[in-house]
Design a protein around this nucleic acid. Structure first.
Lengths: 230, 230
DNA sequence: CGGTATCCCCCGCGATACTG
DNA sequence: CAGTATCGCGGGGGATACCG
Protein backbone atom coordinates (compact mmCIF):
# COMPACT_ATOMS: atom_id res chain seq x y z
CA UNK A 1 0.00 0.00 0.00
CA UNK A 2 1.71 3.10 -1.28
CA UNK A 3 -0.53 5.20 0.93
CA UNK A 4 -1.40 7.27 -2.11
CA UNK A 5 -3.23 6.42 -5.29
CA UNK A 6 -0.65 7.59 -7.80
CA UNK A 7 -3.20 9.70 -9.63
CA UNK A 8 -3.25 13.38 -10.51
CA UNK A 9 -7.06 13.41 -10.34
CA UNK A 10 -8.33 15.88 -7.73
CA UNK A 11 -10.76 13.27 -6.42
CA UNK A 12 -7.82 10.97 -5.74
CA UNK A 13 -5.76 13.71 -4.11
CA UNK A 14 -8.67 14.65 -1.87
CA UNK A 15 -9.46 11.03 -1.05
CA UNK A 16 -5.88 10.43 0.04
CA UNK A 17 -6.47 12.95 2.80
CA UNK A 18 -10.12 12.70 3.65
CA UNK A 19 -11.08 9.11 2.90
CA UNK A 20 -8.82 7.46 5.42
CA UNK A 21 -10.34 5.53 8.24
CA UNK A 22 -11.67 7.78 11.04
CA UNK A 23 -10.65 10.99 9.31
CA UNK A 24 -14.15 11.99 8.14
CA UNK A 25 -15.37 11.62 11.72
CA UNK A 26 -12.49 13.64 13.13
CA UNK A 27 -13.29 16.34 10.61
CA UNK A 28 -16.94 16.21 11.62
CA UNK A 29 -15.95 16.82 15.22
CA UNK A 30 -13.67 19.71 14.32
CA UNK A 31 -16.40 21.20 12.15
CA UNK A 32 -18.77 20.92 15.12
CA UNK A 33 -16.38 23.14 17.01
CA UNK A 34 -14.54 20.74 19.30
CA UNK A 35 -11.03 22.00 19.90
CA UNK A 36 -9.67 20.03 22.83
CA UNK A 37 -8.21 16.59 22.48
CA UNK A 38 -10.51 15.03 25.02
CA UNK A 39 -13.56 16.71 23.55
CA UNK A 40 -12.60 15.32 20.17
CA UNK A 41 -12.24 11.90 21.77
CA UNK A 42 -15.78 12.02 23.08
CA UNK A 43 -16.96 12.38 19.50
CA UNK A 44 -15.01 9.32 18.37
CA UNK A 45 -15.03 7.17 21.51
CA UNK A 46 -13.99 3.96 19.75
CA UNK A 47 -10.87 5.55 18.32
CA UNK A 48 -7.70 5.00 20.30
CA UNK A 49 -6.00 8.13 21.59
CA UNK A 50 -2.78 7.34 19.80
CA UNK A 51 -4.59 7.04 16.50
CA UNK A 52 -6.47 10.29 17.08
CA UNK A 53 -3.20 12.00 17.88
CA UNK A 54 -1.66 10.60 14.72
CA UNK A 55 -4.57 11.71 12.56
CA UNK A 56 -4.47 15.22 14.00
CA UNK A 57 -0.79 15.39 13.20
CA UNK A 58 -1.43 14.29 9.63
CA UNK A 59 -4.20 16.82 9.24
CA UNK A 60 -1.85 19.46 10.56
CA UNK A 61 0.85 18.44 8.06
CA UNK A 62 -1.68 18.53 5.28
CA UNK A 63 -2.76 21.99 6.27
CA UNK A 64 -6.33 21.31 7.35
CA UNK A 65 -5.77 21.79 11.05
CA UNK A 66 -3.63 24.10 13.11
CA UNK A 67 -2.58 23.64 16.66
CA UNK A 68 -2.50 26.61 18.96
CA UNK A 69 -1.52 27.26 22.53
CA UNK A 70 -4.24 27.98 25.03
CA UNK A 71 -3.95 31.05 27.25
CA UNK A 72 -4.12 28.93 30.39
CA UNK A 73 -1.53 26.49 29.09
CA UNK A 74 -2.14 23.39 27.02
CA UNK A 75 -2.95 23.31 23.36
CA UNK A 76 -5.91 22.87 21.10
CA UNK A 77 -6.86 22.38 17.48
CA UNK A 78 -8.76 24.45 15.02
CA UNK A 79 -9.49 24.23 11.33
CA UNK A 80 -7.60 26.24 8.76
CA UNK A 81 -9.34 27.69 5.73
CA UNK A 82 -8.62 24.47 3.85
CA UNK A 83 -10.18 22.42 6.64
CA UNK A 84 -13.17 24.68 6.96
CA UNK A 85 -13.66 24.37 3.21
CA UNK A 86 -14.43 20.70 3.71
CA UNK A 87 -17.65 21.57 5.55
CA UNK A 88 -19.91 21.28 2.51
CA UNK A 89 -18.29 17.97 1.61
CA UNK A 90 -18.84 16.44 5.05
CA UNK A 91 -22.36 17.85 5.18
CA UNK A 92 -23.19 16.41 1.79
CA UNK A 93 -21.73 13.08 2.84
CA UNK A 94 -23.85 13.01 5.99
CA UNK A 95 -26.97 14.04 4.14
CA UNK A 96 -26.38 11.22 1.69
CA UNK A 97 -25.90 8.81 4.59
CA UNK A 98 -29.12 9.87 6.23
CA UNK A 99 -31.04 9.63 3.00
CA UNK A 100 -29.68 6.37 1.65
CA UNK A 101 -28.13 4.23 4.36
CA UNK A 102 -30.53 2.08 6.27
CA UNK A 103 -30.39 2.62 9.98
CA UNK A 104 -32.75 -0.14 10.95
CA UNK A 105 -31.52 -3.09 12.95
CA UNK A 106 -28.27 -1.42 13.82
CA UNK A 107 -28.21 -1.86 17.55
CA UNK A 108 -24.46 -1.96 17.46
CA UNK A 109 -24.47 1.61 16.23
CA UNK A 110 -26.37 2.91 19.24
CA UNK A 111 -24.18 4.67 21.76
CA UNK A 112 -25.64 6.59 24.69
CA UNK A 113 -22.36 8.37 25.50
CA UNK A 114 -22.13 9.72 22.00
CA UNK A 115 -25.82 10.56 21.86
CA UNK A 116 -25.70 12.59 25.06
CA UNK A 117 -22.53 14.31 23.93
CA UNK A 118 -24.17 15.27 20.65
CA UNK A 119 -27.39 16.32 22.34
CA UNK A 120 -25.77 18.55 24.94
CA UNK A 121 -23.87 20.42 22.26
CA UNK A 122 -26.92 21.51 20.39
CA UNK A 123 -29.44 22.43 23.09
CA UNK A 124 -31.16 25.75 22.56
CA UNK A 125 -29.33 27.79 25.14
CA UNK A 126 -31.74 30.67 24.77
CA UNK A 127 -34.78 28.54 25.51
CA UNK A 128 -33.59 26.99 28.74
CA UNK A 129 -35.26 27.80 32.05
CA UNK A 130 -33.54 30.45 34.17
CA UNK A 131 -31.38 29.21 37.00
CA UNK A 132 -30.03 25.69 37.16
CA UNK A 133 -32.15 22.84 35.90
CA UNK A 134 -31.04 19.25 36.26
CA UNK A 135 -32.22 16.66 33.72
CA UNK A 136 -31.77 12.97 34.14
CA UNK A 137 -32.01 10.63 31.18
CA UNK A 138 -32.67 6.97 31.80
CA UNK A 139 -32.15 4.60 28.89
CA UNK A 140 -34.52 1.84 29.85
CA UNK A 141 -32.89 -0.92 27.90
CA UNK A 142 -29.35 -0.29 29.00
CA UNK A 143 -27.39 -1.94 31.80
CA UNK A 144 -26.33 0.05 34.83
CA UNK A 145 -23.17 1.52 33.43
CA UNK A 146 -24.83 3.24 30.50
CA UNK A 147 -28.29 3.73 31.90
CA UNK A 148 -28.24 7.18 33.50
CA UNK A 149 -27.01 10.51 32.19
CA UNK A 150 -27.43 13.98 33.58
CA UNK A 151 -27.64 17.31 31.85
CA UNK A 152 -26.99 20.41 33.91
CA UNK A 153 -28.67 23.35 32.28
CA UNK A 154 -27.41 26.69 33.48
CA UNK A 155 -27.47 30.14 32.02
CA UNK A 156 -25.78 29.92 28.63
CA UNK A 157 -24.14 26.66 29.50
CA UNK A 158 -24.85 22.94 29.38
CA UNK A 159 -22.84 20.22 31.04
CA UNK A 160 -23.27 16.53 30.51
CA UNK A 161 -22.47 14.10 33.31
CA UNK A 162 -21.89 10.40 32.97
CA UNK A 163 -22.05 9.93 36.72
CA UNK A 164 -24.50 11.27 39.27
CA UNK A 165 -23.44 14.84 40.00
CA UNK A 166 -25.43 14.77 43.23
CA UNK A 167 -27.88 17.55 42.44
CA UNK A 168 -31.61 17.17 42.83
CA UNK A 169 -33.20 16.16 39.56
CA UNK A 170 -35.81 18.52 38.15
CA UNK A 171 -36.96 16.50 35.17
CA UNK A 172 -36.56 12.81 34.42
CA UNK A 173 -36.65 11.41 30.91
CA UNK A 174 -37.20 7.67 30.56
CA UNK A 175 -36.86 6.23 27.08
CA UNK A 176 -35.28 3.32 25.24
CA UNK A 177 -31.99 4.25 23.64
CA UNK A 178 -33.22 3.43 20.15
CA UNK A 179 -36.18 5.77 20.55
CA UNK A 180 -34.09 8.68 21.77
CA UNK A 181 -31.64 8.09 18.92
CA UNK A 182 -34.52 8.07 16.43
CA UNK A 183 -35.71 11.37 17.87
CA UNK A 184 -32.22 12.85 17.57
CA UNK A 185 -32.04 11.76 13.95
CA UNK A 186 -35.44 13.23 13.14
CA UNK A 187 -37.14 9.89 12.54
CA UNK A 188 -39.61 10.41 15.38
CA UNK A 189 -40.89 13.35 17.34
CA UNK A 190 -40.86 13.73 21.10
CA UNK A 191 -44.61 14.27 21.06
CA UNK A 192 -45.25 11.16 19.05
CA UNK A 193 -42.99 9.07 21.27
CA UNK A 194 -44.80 10.35 24.37
CA UNK A 195 -48.19 9.58 22.89
CA UNK A 196 -47.01 6.10 22.00
CA UNK A 197 -45.81 5.59 25.55
CA UNK A 198 -42.19 5.20 24.46
CA UNK A 199 -40.94 8.28 26.23
CA UNK A 200 -42.10 9.45 29.62
CA UNK A 201 -41.28 12.61 31.52
CA UNK A 202 -41.42 13.00 35.29
CA UNK A 203 -41.32 16.46 36.79
CA UNK A 204 -43.18 19.74 37.00
CA UNK A 205 -45.72 20.30 34.27
CA UNK A 206 -43.97 23.42 33.05
CA UNK A 207 -40.72 21.57 32.45
CA UNK A 208 -42.49 18.62 30.84
CA UNK A 209 -44.13 20.97 28.43
CA UNK A 210 -41.06 22.95 27.47
CA UNK A 211 -38.66 19.97 27.25
CA UNK A 212 -39.20 19.29 23.58
CA UNK A 213 -38.47 22.92 22.80
CA UNK A 214 -35.01 22.80 24.33
CA UNK A 215 -33.77 20.15 21.97
CA UNK A 216 -32.05 21.05 18.77
CA UNK A 217 -31.85 17.86 16.77
CA UNK A 218 -29.07 16.54 14.59
CA UNK A 219 -28.28 18.75 11.65
CA UNK A 220 -29.40 15.84 9.46
CA UNK A 221 -32.78 15.51 11.15
CA UNK A 222 -34.56 17.26 8.30
CA UNK A 223 -33.07 15.05 5.61
CA UNK A 224 -35.71 12.52 4.54
CA UNK A 225 -34.89 8.85 4.25
CA UNK A 226 -35.31 7.05 0.97
CA UNK A 227 -38.50 5.03 0.81
CA UNK A 228 -37.05 1.57 0.84
CA UNK A 229 -33.64 0.14 1.35
CA UNK A 230 -32.57 -1.20 -2.03
CA UNK B 1 -11.02 -3.18 13.06
CA UNK B 2 -14.71 -3.76 13.32
CA UNK B 3 -15.06 -2.56 9.76
CA UNK B 4 -17.68 -0.11 11.00
CA UNK B 5 -17.47 2.83 13.35
CA UNK B 6 -20.20 1.86 15.80
CA UNK B 7 -21.91 5.20 15.42
CA UNK B 8 -25.46 6.13 14.44
CA UNK B 9 -24.22 9.41 12.95
CA UNK B 10 -25.06 9.68 9.24
CA UNK B 11 -21.54 10.87 8.49
CA UNK B 12 -20.20 7.68 10.02
CA UNK B 13 -22.69 5.47 8.18
CA UNK B 14 -21.79 7.14 4.90
CA UNK B 15 -18.08 6.99 5.59
CA UNK B 16 -18.28 3.25 6.23
CA UNK B 17 -19.35 2.85 2.62
CA UNK B 18 -17.66 5.65 0.76
CA UNK B 19 -14.46 6.36 2.66
CA UNK B 20 -12.83 3.01 2.14
CA UNK B 21 -9.64 2.81 0.18
CA UNK B 22 -10.23 3.02 -3.60
CA UNK B 23 -13.99 3.33 -3.28
CA UNK B 24 -14.18 7.06 -4.03
CA UNK B 25 -12.21 6.45 -7.21
CA UNK B 26 -14.39 3.54 -8.26
CA UNK B 27 -17.42 5.74 -7.70
CA UNK B 28 -15.80 8.48 -9.77
CA UNK B 29 -15.38 6.05 -12.65
CA UNK B 30 -18.94 4.83 -12.41
CA UNK B 31 -20.18 8.42 -12.28
CA UNK B 32 -18.14 9.12 -15.42
CA UNK B 33 -20.18 6.44 -17.11
CA UNK B 34 -17.83 3.46 -17.26
CA UNK B 35 -19.83 0.27 -17.08
CA UNK B 36 -17.47 -2.53 -18.10
CA UNK B 37 -15.03 -4.11 -15.74
CA UNK B 38 -12.04 -3.42 -17.91
CA UNK B 39 -13.07 0.16 -18.55
CA UNK B 40 -13.35 0.66 -14.82
CA UNK B 41 -9.89 -0.83 -14.46
CA UNK B 42 -8.43 1.71 -16.84
CA UNK B 43 -9.64 4.43 -14.51
CA UNK B 44 -7.94 2.82 -11.49
CA UNK B 45 -4.93 1.14 -13.08
CA UNK B 46 -3.05 0.59 -9.82
CA UNK B 47 -5.94 -1.31 -8.28
CA UNK B 48 -5.75 -5.08 -8.56
CA UNK B 49 -8.62 -6.74 -10.42
CA UNK B 50 -9.55 -8.85 -7.44
CA UNK B 51 -9.85 -5.81 -5.24
CA UNK B 52 -11.94 -4.00 -7.84
CA UNK B 53 -14.19 -7.01 -8.12
CA UNK B 54 -14.55 -7.11 -4.36
CA UNK B 55 -15.37 -3.43 -4.13
CA UNK B 56 -17.98 -3.71 -6.85
CA UNK B 57 -19.57 -6.57 -4.95
CA UNK B 58 -19.67 -4.52 -1.77
CA UNK B 59 -21.17 -1.58 -3.58
CA UNK B 60 -23.77 -3.90 -5.02
CA UNK B 61 -24.60 -5.28 -1.56
CA UNK B 62 -24.89 -1.77 -0.23
CA UNK B 63 -27.24 -0.82 -3.00
CA UNK B 64 -25.14 1.75 -4.84
CA UNK B 65 -24.42 -0.36 -7.88
CA UNK B 66 -26.39 -2.88 -9.84
CA UNK B 67 -25.05 -5.49 -12.15
CA UNK B 68 -26.88 -6.23 -15.33
CA UNK B 69 -26.51 -8.62 -18.21
CA UNK B 70 -25.41 -7.27 -21.55
CA UNK B 71 -27.42 -8.13 -24.65
CA UNK B 72 -24.42 -9.70 -26.31
CA UNK B 73 -23.55 -11.71 -23.22
CA UNK B 74 -21.35 -10.64 -20.36
CA UNK B 75 -22.31 -8.27 -17.61
CA UNK B 76 -21.76 -4.70 -16.63
CA UNK B 77 -22.30 -2.26 -13.78
CA UNK B 78 -24.41 0.80 -13.37
CA UNK B 79 -25.30 3.09 -10.52
CA UNK B 80 -28.58 2.87 -8.67
CA UNK B 81 -30.39 5.98 -7.49
CA UNK B 82 -28.45 5.78 -4.24
CA UNK B 83 -25.17 5.61 -6.13
CA UNK B 84 -26.09 8.39 -8.48
CA UNK B 85 -27.01 10.49 -5.44
CA UNK B 86 -23.34 10.46 -4.47
CA UNK B 87 -22.45 12.56 -7.50
CA UNK B 88 -22.56 15.92 -5.69
CA UNK B 89 -20.47 14.46 -2.87
CA UNK B 90 -17.72 13.19 -5.18
CA UNK B 91 -17.82 16.40 -7.17
CA UNK B 92 -17.51 18.49 -4.03
CA UNK B 93 -14.64 16.30 -2.87
CA UNK B 94 -12.82 16.73 -6.16
CA UNK B 95 -13.39 20.45 -6.21
CA UNK B 96 -11.96 20.67 -2.73
CA UNK B 97 -8.98 18.61 -3.84
CA UNK B 98 -8.31 20.85 -6.80
CA UNK B 99 -8.63 23.98 -4.73
CA UNK B 100 -6.68 22.97 -1.66
CA UNK B 101 -4.33 20.08 -2.35
CA UNK B 102 -0.99 21.05 -3.78
CA UNK B 103 -0.19 19.29 -6.99
CA UNK B 104 3.33 20.56 -7.38
CA UNK B 105 6.27 18.20 -7.25
CA UNK B 106 4.07 15.17 -7.58
CA UNK B 107 5.76 13.35 -10.40
CA UNK B 108 4.63 10.07 -8.95
CA UNK B 109 1.04 11.10 -9.57
CA UNK B 110 1.57 11.59 -13.28
CA UNK B 111 0.23 8.76 -15.38
CA UNK B 112 0.01 8.96 -19.17
CA UNK B 113 -2.29 5.96 -19.51
CA UNK B 114 -4.80 7.52 -17.16
CA UNK B 115 -4.41 10.94 -18.72
CA UNK B 116 -5.11 9.65 -22.22
CA UNK B 117 -8.03 7.60 -20.96
CA UNK B 118 -9.52 10.67 -19.29
CA UNK B 119 -8.82 12.87 -22.29
CA UNK B 120 -10.37 10.57 -24.87
CA UNK B 121 -13.56 10.36 -22.84
CA UNK B 122 -14.22 14.04 -22.89
CA UNK B 123 -13.27 15.16 -26.39
CA UNK B 124 -15.85 17.37 -28.06
CA UNK B 125 -17.31 14.85 -30.47
CA UNK B 126 -19.22 17.54 -32.31
CA UNK B 127 -16.13 19.62 -33.02
CA UNK B 128 -13.98 16.88 -34.53
CA UNK B 129 -13.03 16.96 -38.20
CA UNK B 130 -15.14 14.86 -40.52
CA UNK B 131 -13.73 11.52 -41.53
CA UNK B 132 -11.00 9.77 -39.62
CA UNK B 133 -8.27 11.83 -38.03
CA UNK B 134 -5.33 10.21 -36.29
CA UNK B 135 -3.58 12.04 -33.47
CA UNK B 136 -0.32 10.96 -31.96
CA UNK B 137 0.77 12.20 -28.56
CA UNK B 138 4.43 12.02 -27.64
CA UNK B 139 5.33 12.55 -24.02
CA UNK B 140 8.83 13.83 -24.38
CA UNK B 141 10.07 12.92 -20.93
CA UNK B 142 8.77 9.37 -20.88
CA UNK B 143 10.60 6.16 -21.74
CA UNK B 144 9.59 4.12 -24.75
CA UNK B 145 6.81 2.15 -23.15
CA UNK B 146 4.77 5.18 -22.12
CA UNK B 147 5.94 7.65 -24.72
CA UNK B 148 3.44 7.36 -27.56
CA UNK B 149 -0.35 7.30 -27.59
CA UNK B 150 -2.78 7.53 -30.45
CA UNK B 151 -6.26 8.94 -30.61
CA UNK B 152 -8.46 7.85 -33.48
CA UNK B 153 -11.11 10.46 -34.07
CA UNK B 154 -14.01 9.24 -36.13
CA UNK B 155 -17.56 10.41 -36.54
CA UNK B 156 -19.07 10.41 -33.04
CA UNK B 157 -16.40 8.14 -31.72
CA UNK B 158 -12.95 8.34 -30.17
CA UNK B 159 -10.60 5.45 -29.60
CA UNK B 160 -7.41 5.58 -27.64
CA UNK B 161 -4.53 3.29 -28.54
CA UNK B 162 -1.58 2.44 -26.38
CA UNK B 163 0.21 0.83 -29.30
CA UNK B 164 0.71 2.02 -32.84
CA UNK B 165 -2.52 1.22 -34.69
CA UNK B 166 -0.69 1.50 -38.01
CA UNK B 167 -2.63 4.39 -39.47
CA UNK B 168 -0.98 7.46 -40.92
CA UNK B 169 -0.75 10.20 -38.34
CA UNK B 170 -2.50 13.47 -39.19
CA UNK B 171 -1.42 15.55 -36.23
CA UNK B 172 1.43 15.04 -33.80
CA UNK B 173 1.45 16.51 -30.32
CA UNK B 174 4.78 16.64 -28.53
CA UNK B 175 4.73 17.73 -24.92
CA UNK B 176 6.14 16.78 -21.52
CA UNK B 177 3.72 14.74 -19.48
CA UNK B 178 3.59 17.29 -16.68
CA UNK B 179 2.61 20.03 -19.11
CA UNK B 180 -0.18 18.02 -20.70
CA UNK B 181 -1.44 17.08 -17.24
CA UNK B 182 -1.41 20.73 -16.20
CA UNK B 183 -3.42 21.57 -19.30
CA UNK B 184 -5.93 18.83 -18.50
CA UNK B 185 -6.32 20.17 -14.97
CA UNK B 186 -6.81 23.73 -16.18
CA UNK B 187 -3.56 25.05 -14.76
CA UNK B 188 -2.19 25.99 -18.19
CA UNK B 189 -3.70 26.65 -21.58
CA UNK B 190 -2.72 24.97 -24.82
CA UNK B 191 -2.04 28.37 -26.34
CA UNK B 192 0.20 29.42 -23.52
CA UNK B 193 2.13 26.16 -23.59
CA UNK B 194 2.67 26.53 -27.35
CA UNK B 195 3.88 30.07 -26.98
CA UNK B 196 6.26 28.96 -24.24
CA UNK B 197 7.58 26.23 -26.48
CA UNK B 198 6.41 23.47 -24.15
CA UNK B 199 3.92 22.01 -26.58
CA UNK B 200 4.45 21.64 -30.28
CA UNK B 201 2.08 20.49 -32.98
CA UNK B 202 3.11 18.95 -36.28
CA UNK B 203 0.56 18.66 -39.03
CA UNK B 204 -1.65 20.65 -41.37
CA UNK B 205 -2.30 24.18 -40.27
CA UNK B 206 -6.05 23.62 -40.06
CA UNK B 207 -5.66 20.75 -37.61
CA UNK B 208 -3.07 22.64 -35.57
CA UNK B 209 -5.47 25.50 -35.24
CA UNK B 210 -8.52 23.50 -34.27
CA UNK B 211 -6.75 21.08 -31.92
CA UNK B 212 -7.28 23.13 -28.77
CA UNK B 213 -10.98 23.32 -29.52
CA UNK B 214 -11.43 19.56 -29.51
CA UNK B 215 -10.32 19.18 -25.95
CA UNK B 216 -12.80 19.24 -23.14
CA UNK B 217 -10.74 19.55 -20.00
CA UNK B 218 -11.23 17.89 -16.63
CA UNK B 219 -14.48 18.82 -14.97
CA UNK B 220 -12.34 20.41 -12.24
CA UNK B 221 -10.36 22.58 -14.66
CA UNK B 222 -12.37 25.67 -13.77
CA UNK B 223 -11.84 25.29 -10.04
CA UNK B 224 -9.17 27.77 -8.95
CA UNK B 225 -6.31 26.69 -6.75
CA UNK B 226 -5.76 28.33 -3.41
CA UNK B 227 -2.97 30.90 -3.48
CA UNK B 228 -0.54 29.08 -1.26
CA UNK B 229 -0.17 25.58 0.05
CA UNK B 230 -1.98 25.09 3.35
C1' DC C 1 -6.25 17.10 31.28
C1' DG C 2 -3.55 16.00 27.04
C1' DG C 3 -1.45 13.23 25.09
C1' DT C 4 2.93 9.08 24.11
C1' DA C 5 4.70 4.62 24.06
C1' DT C 6 4.48 -0.10 23.18
C1' DC C 7 2.97 -4.40 21.67
C1' DC C 8 1.04 -7.42 18.67
C1' DC C 9 -2.46 -9.20 15.88
C1' DC C 10 -4.65 -9.71 11.79
C1' DC C 11 -6.40 -8.73 7.54
C1' DG C 12 -6.39 -5.52 3.70
C1' DC C 13 -4.42 -5.32 -0.20
C1' DG C 14 -0.71 -5.76 -3.63
C1' DA C 15 1.27 -9.10 -6.84
C1' DT C 16 0.83 -12.69 -9.79
C1' DA C 17 -1.14 -16.36 -12.03
C1' DC C 18 -4.80 -18.54 -13.99
C1' DT C 19 -9.48 -19.82 -15.94
C1' DG C 20 -14.02 -19.85 -18.66
C1' DC D 1 -12.79 -9.84 -22.23
C1' DA D 2 -14.28 -10.54 -17.35
C1' DG D 3 -13.19 -11.76 -13.77
C1' DT D 4 -11.28 -15.70 -9.64
C1' DA D 5 -7.75 -17.93 -6.94
C1' DT D 6 -3.94 -17.92 -4.08
C1' DC D 7 -0.26 -16.28 -1.27
C1' DG D 8 2.36 -13.53 1.69
C1' DC D 9 3.63 -9.26 3.90
C1' DG D 10 3.33 -4.81 6.01
C1' DG D 11 1.64 -1.86 8.72
C1' DG D 12 -2.67 0.08 10.24
C1' DG D 13 -4.89 0.31 14.13
C1' DG D 14 -6.96 -1.74 18.51
C1' DA D 15 -5.85 -2.35 23.39
C1' DT D 16 -3.58 -0.97 27.23
C1' DA D 17 -0.39 1.20 29.99
C1' DC D 18 2.00 5.03 31.10
C1' DC D 19 3.87 9.99 31.60
C1' DG D 20 4.13 15.27 32.23
Amino acid sequence: MDKGYGQFCPVAKAAEIVAERWTPLVMRELLCGSQHFNDLRRGVPRMSPSLLSQRLKRLEDQGLVERFALPGGGSAYRLTAAGEALRPVIEALGAWGKRWVSQHASREDLDPDLLMWDLHRRLHLDRLPTGRTVLRFEFLDMPARQRFYWLLLEAERVDVCFKDPGFDVDLQVAVPLAVMTAIWLGDRSVERARRDGDLTLHGPRSLRQSFAGWLRLSSFAEVPRAGTRQ
